[in-house]
Simulated scan of single mutants.
Amino acid sequence: MTTHHTRVAVLLGSFREGSLNRRIAEHLRDNAPEGVVVDVVPGLTEVPFYNEEIDGPEAPASAVALREAVAQADRVLAVTPEYNGTMPAVLNNAIDWLSRPYGQGAIVGKPFAAIGATPTPYGGKWSHEHARHSATIAGAVVVEDIVVDEPAVDGDPLEDEAAVRRFLGALDALVAHQVEVAA
């Protein structure tokens, strides 16, 4: 008998080795509930900016790998900081690639949420709103009640038990979200 695992693909918006959002994503991966597999999608920095002229049967291998990782997932979670009041370009680019081909992209129909933290008082509020908006346009099913825009708690929300509970709670809510199937 095989056990079904819920797979969550994490799109990471920050690539510094010790970045707070990388650490949040890894904490979720390492502390996922039983039956949940969290995969931090590698190689987003290698995906070229979306250009319809390079898409199609000969799309770059890095874009194909991104699409395959998300296609194999049941859920998508963006873990990202805020750059200049919006999401990092690397996250926006990933969503652009995942939205194609139009209406059939790997993100279409997938439950999606955006969480994370920044050292600013806003905690990524605009970044997460923009990621959710872009993902909606790309065809994802944004889980609206998952909002974790965590401002820094004396520098590190992973050292704050309540903040860690909010991150894990967001993962739980994303996994628990039931996609409505049209009859």
Rank of each mutant, 00 (worst) to 15 (best):
G109R: 10
A183P: 14
A61F: 13
G13L: 06
E159V: 07
P121N: 15
A32C: 01
D149N: 15
A138H: 00
R29V: 06
R100N: 06
A89K: 03
V37P: 05
R75Y: 10
V10P: 01
N92S: 14
I107V: 09
D160R: 01
E58C: 10
V64K: 08
Y50P: 08
K110F: 09
A69C: 02
V153G: 08
H5E: 14
T120A: 14
E17H: 12
V70R: 00
Y83M: 11
V175N: 04
P121V: 15
G124H: 02
Q72W: 09
P48I: 03
N31G: 08
Q104F: 15
V143S: 04
G35T: 10
V141R: 13
V153H: 10
W97L: 02
A94S: 06
E26T: 11
R7N: 08
V179A: 13
E159N: 14
V147A: 15
P121L: 15
R166Q: 11
V41W: 08
F167S: 04
V36H: 05
L171Y: 00
R29K: 08
V175D: 03
T120K: 14
A78Q: 03
P57M: 14
Q104N: 15
A71T: 11
D172F: 09
L28K: 02
I24H: 01
I107M: 07
A131D: 06
G109P: 06
N51F: 00
V37N: 10
G109V: 06
H27D: 09
R100M: 08
V40P: 05
I24L: 05
E53G: 12
Y102K: 12
A69L: 03
I107N: 07
I24E: 07
I54L: 10
A71R: 12
Y50T: 11
P33T: 13
G109T: 07
V8H: 01
A140E: 04
L158S: 02
E26K: 13
R67E: 14
H130A: 15
H4N: 15
V8Q: 01
N92Q: 14
Y50G: 11
P101C: 05
V37I: 12
N51Q: 05
L168M: 11
V64G: 01
A135I: 04
A73K: 01
T80G: 02
G18D: 15
A114Y: 08
Y122L: 15
S127A: 13
